[in-house]
Nucleic acid binder design. Structure first.
Lengths: 200, 200, 200, 200
DNA sequence: TATGAATGAGTATTCATTCAT
DNA sequence: CATGAATGAATACTCATTCAT
């Protein structure tokens, strides 16, 4: 009993939180941050407006929470895949595949991530950090690869950022454009990047 | 006489239009689309609020116009540079350099273009078109290069988009991040892309 | 047994009631009627929000109850002192002293009484009554004094009200203004009033 | 033309300001500060809600402005009457009469002044000042009278405050209680005070 | 044409009150 | 009895848009 924690209350709390976060993600993805209303989010979560404010301090707080949670989950999945990959080449593939996997399962989140992030990142330093932590994963891959000779020497931070944004762009084409001309662009992206960073 | 009379009026019209568009771009870049107010834009343009509505139908219209105008000017410059380049390699360099040139001279515009575009492009099909027209220029370069054997065969549209977004990302790092670690990233970007598309 | 059982319950009831009333008085005095929240009062009373509603029907009811209880206690003390005073002069002194005593011991209550009463009295006739019952005590003193020749004839109700408000004002200076220039203003007030009502 | 100033615009501005202030005073007096809504005030002033915000920054600002304006007008009238009075006795009478006059003509204002002032004065130091400036007028009268021997020596500030509040109380009885038992209480009040401060 | 005063629809947020546990 | 999570009515304030001058 004690093992599961204060089941009754805490489970409900967590359930509500998740419920609201998901609704928020959906509505934010659909309408955009500004056009989305708390009313819509509450309705979508099946709760009253006031309830949203029991779990989040403000609309902005709710938005940031939904981004943060999504980014952290993504980060965890990607990091796990990375650890399982032996070579830099495999790591890059893992990085790409993990992201395609995650965002394919979380399209709403990708929409927010792609469309609202740049806008808000300019005013919310915390978001900048979340963004950069992701690029840091890539920086490690690059740095290790260069050190071990698997990759050609290059300026690590800016290259990491380039690679990162390249994947982001490919994802945008894949996720946001309904008519998926290329059902599995992961390979194409990998090839493109690999040409850019592998040793001649 | 009628010609001259019409011209005088038209010149003023055009002057006002440009003035307001510039003010809009500045304020939109500074505050973001939603936080920007018509009042601020009018004040910045040195006209009254109502005057803005003589030249543009709505806030959104003004925003789209400012984007459109910027994109068209960019497009013109890039296209001109492209025409002057003999080889695909030179064309790619021209494409990159022209964009770095233009956006370095129009930072406000880049900020809007980068941060607001994705958000609005999802609801404004017209913006999608503007975006794609730019990638089309690259598609021509790629297609011609492949045909002439200067470039390795690849899926043209998605590669064009990848290359396009890659340049966009490099620009973001260059324009938006104050501490320009790399004062001239054009070469790096070109190298990275060239590795990805040149024949082995 | 039934008696004791009932008592035990009743004692708890009364204890809770008093506890909540005191908390209410404190928070109302601190924040003012509108800014005070049931949550704050409940927290201060050490009970849950819902519990407050087991003892009082509404926020307004709680407020009125806290005023009523304070006024009744005050009334009782004043009346007791009055009964012990032999002459009109002594009675007036007793009236003044009893009020200064009571409010010095119940500053929170005075604050509400002084700042919130006028506002609410205009819409709550019941409060008007509480107010007037206090003036009635003074009316008796005046009427008796005039009848016995200890006081100069005057219009009793309006004079009573004047005297009453005068004391109230002196109390406000004494209780609300931190820097008590005059540590014992009872005498001054008495003198001022006495000049106004004693026979020439 | 220039003499009257920018007639057209300024006159309208002033007209609107007055209009809204009067409406505010009316609604604040009727409902109390918190219960009054900007909508009600706007409706009463015959303008749209937004218009109120063209002239006043916030509800609180509007409230303070209405108080300030009323107090200043009152102050001016009272001061004028005081200057015309030769003796301390006449000055006290002038002070009382001017206030009764003013508030009889501005009942809404008195209601706010009486019921909302104490509540808000505790949090708005500026209101404290307005309040005290009025008592200062009385202090001059008392100080001069004592110096010239027309009044009995007494602690000036606290006595001034007592006299001031006494008049306020009499006004409350006169203005707020519909059934005016005493149609002209000025004389009674004066007598009462005079007994308290005239030389024995 | 140009102006800017006026409009009023739209929304985040608070908090008294209820009620299932 | 006690709790406190859930509710949703109520409201100040903003700002794109209009239109009389």
């Amino acid at each position: 009993m004690a093992v599961a924690g204060k089941t009754k209350k805490d489970v409900l709390q967590e359930f509500r939180t998740t419920e609201i976060l998901e609704a928020a993600r959906h509505v934010f993805a659909l309408r955009g941050y500004h056009a989305a209303t708390i009313d819509q989010i509450a309705a979508h979560a099946g709760v009253a407006k006031g309830t949203v404010y029991l779990y989040f301090d403000s609309k902005r707080d709710l938005f940031l929470a939904s981004l943060r949670q999504g980014v952290l989950a993504l980060h965890a999945e990607v990091a796990a895949q990375l650890r399982a990959a032996p070579t830099p080449q495999a790591q890059l593939q893992a990085f790409i595949n993990a992201r395609f996997d995650y965002f394919t399962r979380n399209r709403d989140f990708f929409k927010i991530y792609y469309t609202e992030f740049p806008q808000l990142a300019t005013v919310q330093p915390e978001l900048q950090d979340l963004y950069e932590q992701q690029a840091k994963l890539l920086e490690s891959v690059l740095a290790d690869g260069i050190r071990s000779g698997h990759l050609r020497p290059c300026p690590v931070p800016s290259t990491a950022r380039l690679v990162y944004d390249l994947i982001r762009s490919a994802l945008a084409q894949h996720i946001l454009n309904e008519p998926a001309d290329n059902p599995h662009p992961e390979a194409t992206v990998f090839q493109f990047i690999w040409k850019g960073i592998s040793p001649s």
